[in-house]
């Protein structure tokens, strides 16, 4: 069995009201719930904008994408903004294939 890298989530506060979540490792079936939990905790704290740094993710599967959609939905409910501030070319390709680039705000 291929060895997996665990998912790590790091919370950083850069400016007031904005939280940056830096993700590293694999975002997949086994770790998707961790992301949703982390995002819920952050958004529950009443921030107005959540930034996601996905450039450290090695692998994202369909469950990982589902988790990102869930984070998007939670942010919308809380009326918070959601941005993806960094991502790999592989992830950009994945967002394009699934047409999620239409809903997520991606860096240029």
């Amino acid at each position: 069995m291929l060895e997996k890298t665990p998912l790590r989530t790091e919370v950083r506060s850069c400016e007031p009201g904005t939280v940056l979540l830096v993700l590293t490792g694999d975002l997949d079936y086994d770790t998707a719930a961790e992301l949703v939990a982390a995002a819920q905790e952050v958004l529950g704290g009443g921030v107005s904008r959540l930034d996601l740094d996905l450039s450290g993710l090695d692998f994202v599967d369909s469950s990982g994408l589902a988790a990102l959609i869930n984070v998007y939905n939670v942010a919308r409910e809380q009326e918070a903004g959601l941005r993806i501030v960094a991502l790999t070319s592989y992830l950009r390709h994945l967002f394009q294939v699934t047409a999620l680039d239409h809903i997520f705000e991606l860096p240029a």
């Binding site: 994408l65 589902a66 959609i69 394009q96 294939v97 699934t98 047409a99 999620l100 239409h102 809903i103």
Partner: peptide
Amino acid sequence: SRGSMLGAMREVV
């Protein structure tokens, strides 16, 4: 061709 994943958004492309 490409298009949206289903079950995620109200409007699909």
